[in-house]
Every structure is written in structure tokens, then in C-alpha cells.
């Protein structure tokens, strides 16, 4: 049970900092789909796969003083930036590193925009559908996002590379 908190701490630590709640949710969802050991359950919400449990755990870690949540403004909208505190780093020193081999994947996700991660996460959520059906589904559910055909192509290419471990290593 404690491990689940440690994984979140280590993930944020490896990413250095994560800008945005949506980005944090999507990064962890995609990582879980690629077998990182997260146990939080995700369901589909208005903006793609989302985990209430992860939200509460991050709040708990903030209240424990292990994660710092900085409220910023980006293009007029509120955004939260997450990073480990010194106390959080101290807690990690007492545990074996579990995510070291996944640093390339975490860094790669970190370098993407939250809009792109939302698309990738949503396509992965509908992976049981054919590619055509999944694209139709995303276009229908996220019509306001206006994802272009080029973005779908890039997203599927990204997913394929993750599957072949080309991005992760």
C-alpha cells in the first residue's frame, strides 16, 4: 500500500516537475498502460481517462509535505505545478529505486503537451476498438478539441513506438 505512494513520488521526481493536473493524470495513465506499477483505477471522464484515487493520493502527498503544489497562471487559466519537496526526496532515499529503467519514457511524456497526452491517453482507452472506430469515437467525444488527422497520425505513431519500446529506451 505504501508502495503506491512511493511510485507517485518517484515518478514526479524522475520527471523533475509536472505542469498541470491534466498532464499528471495522463502521464500516469499512459505509463500504467505501459506496465509501470501504478494501481490507481482510471475511468473515462469528460477529458479522457482520469483517476479520482490518484487525485486524492496527490492531495494526501501535498498535505504530508512531500509534494509541493504551486498554483500558477498560464494564458489566463490556473495551472498547478507539482514537484517533490526536500522532505519528499528524503522519503525516497529510504526506498529502492523502482522506476529507473523507465526514465526515458517519463521524460518523453514530460516533453509532450497535455493536449497531445490527452489524445494519446484517450486512444489507448479505446484500444479495443479498431483504429477507424477509435478515431471516430475521439472525434465525437472531443469535438471541441478539433484534433487534426495529422495529430491522430502522430499519436498512433507515438503509441506504436511506445509499444516497440523505441520511445521508452
Amino acid at each position: 500500500m505504501l508502495e503506491s505512494y512511493i511510485y507517485i513520488l518517484e515518478f514526479i521526481n524522475k520527471a523533475k516537475e509536472i505542469s498541470g493536473r491534466k498532464k499528471l493524470q495522463k502521464m500516469i495513465y499512459i505509463s500504467k498502460k505501459f506496465n509501470l506499477p501504478f494501481i490507481e483505477r482510471f475511468n473515462f471522464h469528460f477529458y479522457g481517462p482520469y483517476s479520482d484515487e490518484l487525485t486524492v493520493k496527490v492531495e494526501e502527498l501535498c498535505n504530508m509535505g512531500l509534494i509541493e503544489e504551486e498554483k500558477t497562471k498560464k494564458s489566463g487559466a490556473t495551472q498547478y505545478v507539482y514537484r517533490l519537496t526536500n522532505k519528499g526526496e528524503d522519503v525516497l532515499t529510504n526506498h529502492l529505486e523502482q522506476l529507473r529503467e523507465h526514465i526515458p519514457l517519463i521524460n518523453n511524456l514530460q516533453n509532450q503537451t497535455s493536449r497531445f497526452l490527452e489524445l494519446v491517453a484517450t486512444l489507448l482507452y479505446f484500444e479495443s476498438l479498431s483504429m477507424i472506430e477509435a478515431i471516430e469515437k475521439v472525434k465525437s467525444l472531443k469535438s471541441k478539441q478539433n484534433y487534426t488527422d495529422e495529430e491522430f497520425t502522430i499519436a498512433y505513431d507515438f503509441i506504436e513506438k511506445l509499444k516497440k519500446n523505441e520511445v521508452a529506451c
Partner: peptide, 8 residues
Amino acid sequence: PGEEEERL
């Protein structure tokens, strides 16, 4: 309140 569009 769900800032950043995480929940409506």
C-alpha cells in the same frame, strides 16, 4: 471545483 478542466 475542478480547475484545469480535470472534472466538470
